[in-house]
Design a protein around this nucleic acid. Structure first.
Lengths: 191, 191
DNA sequence: ATCTATATATGATAAAGGTCATATTTAGAT
DNA sequence: ATCTAAATATGACCTTTATCATATATAGAT
């Protein structure tokens, strides 16, 4: 048995990392299987030893990115939940995020998902529900009394990032993000 | 000179209508020039007498849809501005909108625009600014004191519709929309 | 050192779709 | 009725790209 046991697993992971980053920034059809493979220094032939189609890769990349997202990161013990939540949300509503550092697929792929298969949609929905859950948990006592209220908050931050990515006028982008950060504070008071 | 003067103009408009509807629901690359033409009972050959490329069509469809949107519709004289605004926002945050009736490209194409050319981005930004302006106008005295606050409201409604389109669980979609309608009322009080 | 299962690379195939060249049809002007 | 410029249709071309078949290289087991 050639190659160490973990070799394939590592390659798969590296493909997923490239895929995640490329799909997030360009969407499903603007990304090529070949492009993904070259991004991790492989050629397209190797691809089908890992995934059975480009669609499968897309869904797997989506799942992968959920487990690697900022939101999924463990809170440092020395930071309070509220402080941590505040950092997460400010990071989410930042120019850096809009520019593509650690892109959140919920915002970057929102309309792209619509034309993908059920598996992709399921992965997206799962990530979305998880985002709501995590925010509520960290907000603790400052979470909205009515749990569904969180849905408008996540709509807002996802929408803000999605729209901001299309806007070339950076001063307008800053205003959008600032306005949402402000609004977040008023929705989760104490944050 | 064959065909009445207005014939070509009418055909162009009909192409734009089909394009608007198809692009909005499926995005740029999932729509085919041929598909657009067949949708208005023409064949692909006629296309290039009207537009010089698929990209140009996309941008033109975006501009076209801005002038035909619900938001651009004239307010009936017998309806108060606030009442009208309330109707507009409730319509925006409705299942029917999510399902594709009179789709707003700001929500339906948010992430699609990112991979398009400058012309498309400009058209998108223009429509976006216009949405903010119109809401502020109709809100009148109830508009946010700080005009930039409107940006978080539009982020929210655009995000809500964009996300809702991806979610197959209709009961969750209803909750998202309801939560945003509620939030709109609290942001524009008196509405 | 050699053997071998597995990973990766190379080359081929085929389908899709944007674009254009050419043929055909249309309806207003004469 | 006929003529003609403009609109539309048809057929072809060519690029792109997902996918697969086949060849090669890798590294652990012997």
């Amino acid at each position: 048995m050639p190659y160490s046991k973990k070799h394939k697993e590592r390659t798969r992971k590296s493909i997923l990392e490239s895929a995640q980053s490329l799909f997030s920034s360009k969407g499903f059809s603007a990304v090529t299987v070949n492009e993904v493979m070259q991004d991790c220094s492989l050629t397209r032939g190797a691809f089908y030893a890992h995934f059975k189609s480009k669609s499968e890769l897309y869904s797997e990349a989506l799942k992968f990115s959920a487990t690697n997202s900022e939101l999924a990161k463990m809170k440092p013990k020395e930071t309070s939940s509220k402080e941590w939540l505040s950092q997460l949300l400010n990071g989410y509503l930042s120019i850096e995020h809009v520019n593509g550092e650690k892109p959140c697929p919920l915002a970057f792929l929102a309309t792209d998902i619509v034309s993908q298969d059920k598996t992709a949609k399921k992965a997206y929905a799962h990530t979305y529900k998880n985002m709501n859950k995590i925010i509520i948990e960290y907000a603790g006592a400052d979470a909205p009394r009515n749990k569904d209220d969180i849905l408008s908050l996540t709509s807002m931050i996802i929408g803000a990032v999605a729209v901001s990515r299309t806007i070339e006028d950076k001063s307008l982008v800053k205003k959008i993000l600032a306005s949402c950060r402000q609004q977040v504070r008023s929705m989760l008071d104490g944050i």
